[in-house]
Design a protein around this nucleic acid. Structure first.
Length: 345
DNA sequence: AAGTCGGGGTC
DNA sequence: GACCCAGACTT
């Protein structure tokens, strides 16, 4: 079954594959960067980030030596910011332990920061022709439907089993093509939301979910728990030419990113002004008030923002010009609407 | 095994 | 509003 799948899949991929920036070559740095950026992130979202990142940091050595502010700025808006910290940590490991040359053995690749089973398998097969499966969400979906396998794909045991089954029959010639072909099928034909395009699927004839008409129920996943709601009051503190920023902790949510000063509570106008006075920034005028909800995977921020003209700056915040905010400081998307509003004051 | 960690497209 | 994306790491 799986052998027949690969036989039909490879020629289909060669005929229908998308042209993507990271498919120009098999340079490990390029493939690696793309795989990290693509973790839980759509192809369309990654394209421009990928190009910009490589223009700024063309080599692994450049990445290893880059200031943290620069790599966070390059990742700004892409999310999961620990990805880029781990990316740099791995780059430093490659420079220190592998003389700057990306390692070619699966075990070495797998041991680098930010590289798990999926990414190691992808890089080893695509860059080094190792017959190592790369089991991502696409592959789990394709496999579940092809075999009408109703095991929960969120379970470790299921992923291990599917990885093992693929490993047994993985093509020994051009395994990197097999890796990309499986994912391409999941991304463009056996799609995650909506009906799969079985009419153009190269393996429709051997698909058990299609035969049984059970594709709607596959793959099976764990139940998701609902998000917590956090109320926030955000302070857009402005002088004549600067705005106050705060750098977040280097651990936890949005680690190391910059933000507008805020507190985890819903303050009314008076309490907000009192808060700013307590920070000794001397509030002059309350210019505007806006509200905005930002949704993360596991939490919602219900934010009320007060735009306040201040007489003085304090030592508690970093007061920066709008220009340097845009050019230098990495601001998460959660705060982006407030940044835009400043222009309308 | 469950929780944490972003942001956005699609239905 | 719910789902989920070329997942990894921590607890």
């Amino acid at each position: 079954m799986l052998i027949a799948m690969f036989e039909a899949l490879i020629p289909w991929y060669e005929a229908h594959k998308r042209e993507l920036p990271w498919r120009q070559d098999k340079e490990p740095y390029h493939v690696w960067l793309s795989e990290i950026m693509l973790q839980q992130t759509r192809v369309e979202a990654v394209k421009e980030y990928y190009r910009r990142f490589l223009t700024a940091l063309p080599t692994i050595a450049d990445l290893a030596e880059a200031p943290e502010e620069q790599i966070l700025k390059l990742w700004e808006g892409l999310g999961y910011y620990n990805r880029v910290r781990n990316l740099q940590k791995a780059a430093q490991t490659i420079c220190a332990e592998y003389t700057g040359v990306f390692p070619s053995e699966y075990a070495q690749i797998r041991s680098l920061s930010g590289i798990g089973d999926y990414t190691a398998g992808a890089i080893a097969s695509i860059c080094f022709d190792a017959p190592t499966p790369a089991v991502d969400g696409n592959v789990l979906r394709v496999y579940s439907r092809l075999l009408a396998d109703d095991a929960n794909i969120d379970l470790q045991t299921t992923k291990k089993r599917i990885t093992r089954k693929l490993q047994e029959t993985y093509p020994q010639k051009n395994p990197g093509i097999a890796t990309q072909a499986l994912m391409e099928l999941g991304a463009t034909v056996c799609v995650p939301n909506g009906a799969p395009r079985c009419d153009v699927c190269p393996v429709a004839e051997i698909c058990q979910a299609r035969k049984q008409d059970t594709w709607r129920n596959l793959p099976v996943r764990s139940e998701k728990k609902k998000r917590k709601i956090v109320d926030k009051t955000v302070f857009i503190l402005l002088t004549e030419d600067t705005v106050a920023l705060h750098k977040r902790s280097t651990s936890g949510l949005l680690a190391g990113m910059w933000e507008f000063p805020n507190v985890d509570a819903k303050l009314d106008k008076q309490a907000a002004v009192t808060q700013v006075t307590g920070w000794q920034a001397e509030p002059l005028d309350l210019l505007m008030q806006t509200s905005y909800t930002h949704i993360f995977s596991h939490v919602e921020w219900h934010m009320t923002a007060y735009y306040i003209r201040c007489r003085k700056t304090n030592k508690k915040w970093k007061w920066v010009t709008k220009e340097s905010l845009d050019e230098t400081y990495a601001l998460p998307s959660a705060f982006r609407p407030f940044r835009e509003q400043i222009e309308n004051l």
